[in-house]
Amino acid sequence: MTDTTSPMTLSHAEAATPIAPGRTPWKHEAIGFVLGFALLALLPLIFGDTYARHILIMAFIYAIVASNWDLSLGYGGVFNFGHLALFGIGVYAYSLLTKLAAFDPWVALFASGVIATLAAILVTIPILRLKGIYIILVTFGFAQLVMQVIISQSAITGGTQGLVRIPGLYVFDHNMVRDGKSAYFYIALALLVASTLFLRVFVRSRAGASIVALRDNEEYAISRGVSIVRQRMLTLAASAFFTGIAGAFYAAYQRNASIDVFGMSLATIILSMVLLGGTSTIYGAIIASFVLTIFAEWMADFGAWRPMITAVLIIGVMLAYPSGLVGMIKASWGALAGRLKRPA
């Protein structure tokens, strides 16, 4: 999948202009996109057992969360450390809407995306004037605030105990439990396709170019008429919708909700997916989500050593390839292409 899509270059100068020569033509990208996701859609034919499909579904959810984070963190340059709170809001919005308000699961799924978007707009207000590390701290504080409110309102949210028996999704009369998870697999894949399509169209649009311009040269972008207030809100809101939906899907799939989604460990995993993949690519985060999720499963036998090996690998990749896995793939692809060309 990786070599067919060839994500756009990381160079800021090139990324800032929508029609720079170094960019992949949209037709090439569309072909890679369709081929890549068609391959993913064929995976249940190879992996028949429920557990392998479960791993893939989790990888899809992580991929949605990580790639949306790449929009605000990578393209927007907004160090939003409350991204996982938006995911958590999706989880709890879905759980409470279906359990307490008896919403239809699909309506609740969509509503969770909207609620996460509203929350993102709300959190943008205090960070409009802030830069860099201060944004990290406020958004981090926001995430903690949401978690603390959920813990303290235990009568509704279940507090630290969490919620169980959350209604799952349905597809007509299809039996969601006895189909080897194939329905959930294709719903998760469809969500990932929709989210990725949305993100790629967004970053290739004029709005996408303007948020990159704000990141790379704020004064110049503002002087050329880009509104930092509007674009920052747009960035955060755009990154929140599918994140919230992913949270809702996660709750529907797991059938329970717990405050673990606000914890540092999940945030660290997802953040390493974004950075390991290479920021400002969208595809990088998705690839890294697959790599890390499958890698974590593959190392299940190592027990306590697993998080340590993962940590060492993350540090190693970050030190050797600052532009992440995508940079690594590009470097090796470039070397390979150079070697193939030479004899001719």
Binding site: I136, L271, T279, V312, P322
Partner: peptide, 30 residues
């Protein structure tokens, strides 16, 4: 130290120190 001078150092150091923290924490657990 190896990251000093990189343009996105603030962000990358967040992840490397988080990873190092996870390494030490799990090491202590072991």
């Amino acid at each position: 130290r190896p990251l000093i001078g990189r343009p996105n150092i603030v962000l990358v150091v967040v992840i490397t120190t988080l990873a190092a923290g996870s390494l030490i924490e799990n090491g202590a657990l072991t």
